[in-house]
Design a binder for these strands. Structure first.
Lengths: 149, 149
DNA sequence: TTTAGTGCAAACTCTTTGCAGCTAA
DNA sequence: TTAGCTGCAAAGAGTTTGCACTAAA
């Protein structure tokens, strides 16, 4: 699905096909969830040792520009990228201990956001909602074994 | 108020007082709202031309460590800092056209966030909610004069 | 006097860009 | 053949660190 769209987009922009890029794209969509450029490079290199980080960045930029990927800045240093499921929106629960990222969606929260925006005369085009804390597994660990890193 | 707390914190950590740092702190709390290190440097230099960016960074780090400031990463390149009003929490409406940042607080949204977290077994320690869009003034401009940027 | 504070320059991290060779169309 | 794709090295942007000097306590 994304494949066809991307192919069309590439043609429409006068760009060319490339197997290197195809592999990066394929890997990006296969690795579910959030990836950094470095992580994605690692995955891609399992199949093609010669790929460079530059190409990964360029491919992620292309995916972001054509709307197939979204760039996010969580607390960590670099940017994270994730596939943009068309029309679907979700927010994130981020565990500060193990780094796990869970996704959720809550229509009620979104309605309240709209209401807040209206009160201030704002028109929302997108939003970021990130809940940082401790996931179930880590808070279990903490209870059993309370020495923290 | 922050002054006294900071003074106490500095003493408790075996640090020393410094008029340079005092001026940065004072300026940081005077300039209401969000500031980047560069912006704060500009403000501080109005009174003291010899302050260095390094010292601003170090002071912001100190303020963040002792809990008097919070670091945020909005869409722009660098980090923003803002005073952390004790106990009070607020979220942000960010205009993508003019960069205005409005603050708001909504207890209902926060309750829903807690509910979502509970569902996933998460314990929230903090959260980020940023609504990006167009502010009242800019959407007015757009209507009157619809060429954008 | 000891040791934190400071500015400067250099280092560092993440990301982008310039360049020369490679390759799809 | 033309012009996009690629890796490498270098450049950028934001931030931190090493160092020598200054100045609180």
């Amino acid at each position: 699905m994304e494949r066809a769209f991307l192919k069309h987009y590439i043609k429409s922009q006068g760009l060319r096909q490339s197997s290197r890029r195809d592999r990066i794209v394929e890997t990006f969509f296969k690795v579910k969830g959030h990836t950094t450029a470095e992580e994605l490079l690692g995955q891609v290199r399992k199949k093609d040792k010669l790929v460079g980080l530059t190409t990964v960045y360029r491919t992620l930029k292309l995916l972001t520009q054509c709307g197939l990927a979204v760039e996010r800045k969580f607390d960590r240093k670099g940017a994270s990228f994730e596939p943009a499921q068309a029309g679907e929106h979700h927010d994130h629960l981020i565990c500060l201990e193990c780094g796990t990222i869970l996704e959720f969606e809550n229509k009620n929260i979104e309605s309240l956001q709209e209401a807040v925006a209206r009160e201030h005369g704002f028109i929302i085009s997108r939003h970021i909602l990130e809940l940082y804390g401790t996931c179930q597994e880590c808070s279990g660990k903490t209870r059993k074994n309370s020495k923290k890193k």
